[in-house]
Design a protein around this nucleic acid. Sequence first.
DNA 1: CGCTTAACGCAAATGTTTTGCGTTAAGGTG
DNA 2: CACCTTAACGCAAAACATTTGCGTTAAGCG
Lengths: 187, 187
Amino acid sequence: MAVKERIRIGGRSARIQAAVHEAVHQLGALTTRNQVTVPQIAAAAGVTPSTIYRRWGDLQTLLADVAVARLRPIADPDDTGATESDLRAFIDQFAEEMSSPVGRALMRDVFSSAQDFPLQCAAFNREHLSTIAARAAARGEPPLDVDDVIDHVVAPIIYHILYDDREVTPDYCHALLDRLRAQSSPT
Amino acid sequence: MAVKERIRIGGRSARIQAAVHEAVHQLGALTTRNQVTVPQIAAAAGVTPSTIYRRWGDLQTLLADVAVARLRPIADPDDTGATESDLRAFIDQFAEEMSSPVGRALMRDVFSSAQDFPLQCAAFNREHLSTIAARAAARGEPPLDVDDVIDHVVAPIIYHILYDDREVTPDYCHALLDRLRAQSSPT
DNA sequence: CGCTTAACGCAAATGTTTTGCGTTAAGGTG
DNA sequence: CACCTTAACGCAAAACATTTGCGTTAAGCG
């Protein structure tokens, strides 16, 4: 079932959505990521379970919806004045968020649902990088290829978080960025 | 619950494991990846649901176990006589398998479980690449950096399959390989 | 303000997961 | 090879989660 988003955005519906999301946060933080049930969430949110089932379909979809809401950026990446530092700041923050226990849990929730949630997350990343690329163009700096950044910086970071649960250090991220820079501007 | 692997590998246990895995395959193929329940699988395998719950814990863990079994390589990658063609053959096959509907479903199952299944899959990839790297060394070819291949060829392929569900074409894979080659042997 | 209908609450029905207990058979031992 | 120990199983009851029908509430609109 697709999550309903666009209808009845006012009053009660919005309140219930907020209450349910909030309940998931509290219970998810409480029980270290597991064993959460729909009836529990319903009780914590002060609604009946059937409300949750009708709106979200199942637990996985609800968790994925909450995860995407949490991953949704609230602001553009910082403008540090230069593409290189913009990128580094963005990637550092991205890697830190995603490799934290909470980030890993959010990613798992996003991928566990048979929905277009992953696509939304991909769009978030792409938007941010596009913003940085647009700034580069406005400044007259060499153009930034967003796809290259995704393929050779974002993708390896995600891979190591998902597969090996190897630690993703700032040093590792910076090496990826250095390599990208070397590639795009050959001496 | 961890999936039990190492105990009672003989007779009945093995038969039941095989029957359950087979049932998952049949039902998973039948219903295009969804709505499969433990009782259904149990009935198809000729066992009681409680057997499955006790052995695997829950549906997601069972599906992940089956997925890993299916992703587990049965043979070393082909030896084509040269590192470059070895790599290309391996990556082409990998991309094709993983981007197929079945491959995508298997990956989702692997990531949906709170277990070390992803780690096992990462190990499969690494083993294959190590085999190819060992051949390169034996032939006296320039050494192959397995981590580079994972970061800059495997990771982008996986990223696009998981996030965007963009199509991963052989041309795209070859471009990744070309770029890797250019990087490792600068002119 | 009143109408229409999406979304909700409640409770019964249905389906899934867990658990206790007796039984079967795997792997080891005398 | 027969016996012993115990992991793993089947069955059935209990606990729990999910679905569904129906009456009620309130959002959005004229």
